[in-house]
């Protein structure tokens, strides 16, 4: 759409600007403040320069949490994206099946995150949970509280349960926008199922898939509540992702300096990812 240049539009944006500045810029400045200062209590602060950043960037604890988070994000992407595509391709396009599928599939997306955690905490327990009991009956010594592998399995399957529907719904939205004529043309040409997918459906899903991947990556990169409820970051530190580690450091140990430095590094990573997201979106909007 052709937009007219009008700087008075600033007045319309002003309320948003003030509100978000209050709830984003002010807290962020506090974080910046802490990240360059040290304290011995009594509200006395000393200039610490970039010491905290040095410490965090060289700390094994941060590397480990970052590594775990990246591994987690890649695993869930590798499972959720193909699974989401397959399900979206097989969803009904018309009739009563459409609302049924949409409503039931979207349900996990709307459950409070700590309830998602609670559901899986209960579901995986060997004494009272369906999953835990079934696995135990199959002869698997399943215990997500003590075994790191089992904890990872539980957290990953929980995330698949929680978020695959997002990929499904986005892909489905891309698929239904393909006009019937495309499929008819493919039929006349005798295109195989694979060719239809590769040359008609996949190109149409390109953009929604990119959105889905980026959203899933970012949200899994700041996951906190669900694994915290299920495993509390344990056993040991095996499921301590970045956010969990950060909250432990800031609220649990009250190490404000390192926590603030870590917050800023964390935020910069997110900023970079957001920029990728934004570029993808605006490039497409420009094409449209």
């Amino acid at each position: 759409m052709e937009k007219t240049w009008n700087n008075k539009a600033w007045f319309m944006v002003l309320p948003v600007l003030l509100l978000v500045a209050f709830s984003a810029v002010v807290p962020l400045m506090t974080v910046v403040n802490y990240s360059v200062q040290d304290t011995f209590g009594n509200n006395q602060f000393f200039w610490a320069g970039t010491d905290w950043f040095d410490e965090i960037l060289h700390s094994e604890r941060f590397h480990a949490a970052l590594g775990r988070n990246l591994v987690f994000s890649f695993i869930i992407l590798a499972i959720e994206v193909p699974l989401g595509i397959i399900i979206a391709l097989n969803m009904p396009r018309k009739g009563w099946g459409v609302p049924v599928c949409l409503v039931l599939m979207a349900l996990p997306l709307l459950i409070p995150w700590n309830v998602v955690g609670t559901i899986w905490q209960v579901f995986g327990r060997v004494d009272i949970g369906l999953l835990g009991r079934t696995l135990a009956n199959l002869g698997i010594n399943y215990n997500y509280v003590q075994n790191p592998m089992h904890a990872w399995f539980t957290v990953i399957i929980m995330d698949i349960w929680h978020w695959t529907s997002l990929v499904v719904l986005l892909c489905y939205a891309g698929l239904v926008s393909i006009p019937d004529a495309f499929y008819q043309a493919a039929k006349i040409d005798g295109a195989s199922r694979w060719a239809v997918f590769r040359y008609i459906q996949l190109p149409k899903m390109n953009r929604v898939l990119l959105i889905a991947v980026l959203l899933r990556f970012m949200d899994s990169f700041m996951i906190y509540t669900e694994p915290f409820v299920v495993t509390g970051g344990g056993p040991g530190n095996s499921t301590t992702f970045l956010s969990i580690d950060l909250v432990k450091m800031a609220v649990g140990q009250f190490d404000l300096g390192p926590a603030a430095a870590m917050s800023i590094i964390y935020f910069l990573i997110i900023l970079l990812l957001s920029w990728v997201f934004y570029t993808v979106m605006t490039n497409y909007d420009a094409e449209r």
Binding site: K3, T4, W5, N6, N7, K8, A9, W10, V13, V16, L17, V20, A24, V26, P27, L28, T30, V31, M218, F221, M222, Y224, L242, S243, I244, L246, V247, A250, V251, L256, A259, S263, Y266, F267, I270, L271, L273, S274, W275, F277, Y278, T282
Partner: peptide
Amino acid sequence: YRFLGDKHLFFWLLTNRMAPPAVFALP
């Protein structure tokens, strides 16, 4: 409308949607 800094502002809003709540809890 197009106005001074509109694209930066739109992007800045997005970064807040993407910001990890853990960063903001203590501040």
